[in-house]
């Protein structure tokens, strides 16, 4: 006798939140051109939408002064501003991105010339998590969310606490953070983010094949990841930044009460106001200074 087929909510419906590095200082110094990067990413986003009618893509632009949602495939406003030559997703995204960059420029504050400021990764992550939380609360039938960080600029140690908080909240709501890092050195933040949340960290060695990397590694939905072997990062840089000067440190002081990290000895924890003991403090701080100098 024919029976009604049993149905389960299929796991391969994805909500992909992409944070896009739009740090102009980085791109103008980087060998790979932004327009090429963008066209590969756009093709990737379009193919994600193509894979399933219910798939959803959200793009967050990450500048060095601000962050903003530049595209949401579920939003109704997407129908406007099509000129017929390219799909709505492209023209919408590009339009919003252009506006965002203009706004970001206005917010520019003076920074030391000759250096590349870091992008606001912490802000982008927080926005992504907020969006995902909204999806969670919309009902039991939400798609499987994941975050993909497409970044190239160097880590900003001053964002350490905020980024770690974002990572832990992502871990808590079991949202994996994938990172595709295109910069020359590995990003410790993104490595940790992916490691802690169970996402994939990968640094593509050949950037002109970026689409291939994206479609092979990062297009994999969470359901399929159970069955596939994906790149694992081996050496994760677990170094922390201190809370007081935002420097990446190898060794430091940890508050025994709240686990705040400091690079030098303090009388009182700035986070939980615990008073630290005085014994051997001089010796220890001298030690640490020596280490830093070497």
């Amino acid at each position: 006798m024919a029976s009604v087929p049993s149905k389960h909510y299929t796991d391969d419906i994805s909500l992909l939140v992409v944070t896009l590095d739009t740090n102009p200082f980085f791109w103008s110094t980087f060998s790979f051109h932004f327009s090429e990067f963008l066209s590969q990413v756009l093709a990737f986003l379009n193919s994600i939408l193509l894979l399933g009618q219910l798939n959803q893509v959200v793009v967050i632009a990450t500048g060095c002064n601000s962050c903003s949602y530049v595209y949401d495939s579920s939003s109704d406003r997407n129908h406007a501003s099509t000129n017929g030559t390219m799909p709505a997703i492209y023209s919408n995204l590009l339009h919003n991105l252009d506006e965002f960059v203009a706004k970001d420029q206005q917010l520019t504050t003076a920074h030391k010339p000759g250096t590349v400021p870091s992008s606001l990764l912490s802000g982008a992550l927080s926005m992504a998590l907020c969006y995902i939380q909204r999806a969670f609360r919309a009902g039991p039938m939400h798609p499987q969310p994941r975050i993909l960080c497409l970044h190239g600029s160097t880590d900003g140690p001053e964002q350490y606490v905020a980024i770690m908080n974002a990572i832990f909240s992502a871990q808590r709501s079991s949202v994996p953070v994938d990172s595709c890092y295109i910069g020359s050195n590995n990003s410790a933040f993104l490595q940790q983010a992916s490691y802690i949340t169970g996402g994939i960290y990968y640094r593509p060695p050949q950037l002109d094949g970026l689409f291939q990397y994206l479609s092979t590694v990062f297009a994999t939905d969470l359901h399929s990841r159970e069955y596939l072997r994906l790149p694992k990062s081996l050496g994760v840089d677990f170094r922390a930044s201190c809370f007081c000067h935002k420097q990446t440190i190898d060794m430091g002081y940890v508050c025994s009460v709240c686990l705040s990290i400091f690079c030098e000895h303090h009388d009182k924890c700035s986070t939980c106001s615990s008073v630290f003991g005085q014994t051997q403090s001089d010796v220890a701080s001298a030690d640490s200074r020596k280490r830093k100098a070497s």
Binding site: T22, F25, W27, S28, F34, L38, V101, T108, V116
Partner: peptide, 17 residues
């Protein structure tokens, strides 16, 4: 090292968009 001014870098970014 980045020796360009912010106008220049933003300009080039928008141009590529």
């Amino acid at each position: 090292r980045c020796n360009l001014s912010s106008e220049q870098v933003y300009g080039s970014l928008r141009k590529s968009i």
